[in-house]
Design a protein around this nucleic acid. Structure first.
Length: 156
DNA sequence: GCCAACGTTGGC
DNA sequence: GCCAACGTTGGC
């Protein structure tokens, strides 16, 4: 059964345009350093799942594209890279702690902004809108997914 | 830059 | 296992 996810990226790190410019519009989703988010990738995601590409920590946070999960979870190489801000010396190559999936952008959309999402009566329970939410990956209810695609004028 | 909320660490 | 201290996230 196809599932749906919201994945946050700081556009100063990897924007939807950066992803579109990559080969096959696909980027490895590096840098997840939270166990719950990792477990969503490892245990929850399947190739083909729907992804809302969300820009966070920027002037206009919001959903800026529709993407898909393009690989199974595999070892995030940045955890072993001393040059990387995501390097984790506690993670050993024989037992990698952090994983990633490849994410392929399917459509760039307009920015469905955070204030718009908040104002939408049909999206009140969207996890990313919950107070104190900090998870960089959250599951999205099918009903919420459909509403958001409708708002963006994207047909499925 | 501020600060609320949350996750992690480490002493006990 | 508890919990205070600390670091990080992320909107504003």
């Amino acid at each position: 059964m196809k599932k749906f996810w919201l994945m946050k990226s700081e556009p100063s790190e990897v924007s939807v345009d950066d992803a579109l410019a990559a080969p096959k519009s696909t980027v490895p989703w590096t840098g997840v350093r939270n166990y719950q988010a990792r477990n969503f990738m490892r245990d929850g995601m399947q190739v083909g799942d729907g992804v809302l590409f969300y820009h966070s920590s920027c002037a206009e946070p919001g959903v800026v594209g529709i993407a898909r999960v393009a690989s199974a979870a595999y070892t995030d190489p940045t955890q072993f890279d001393p040059q990387s801000p995501y390097c984790d010396l506690a993670s050993k190559p024989e037992a990698p702690r952090w994983l990633l999936v490849d994410v392929q952008v399917v459509h760039k959309t307009r920015n469905l902004t955070l204030p718009e999402l908040r104002a939408d009566a049909d999206l009140q329970d969207l996890l990313v809108l919950k107070k104190g939410n900090r998870l960089s990956i959250t599951p999205v209810e099918p009903a919420h997914w459909h509403v958001i695609l409708l708002r963006l004028g994207v047909s499925e």
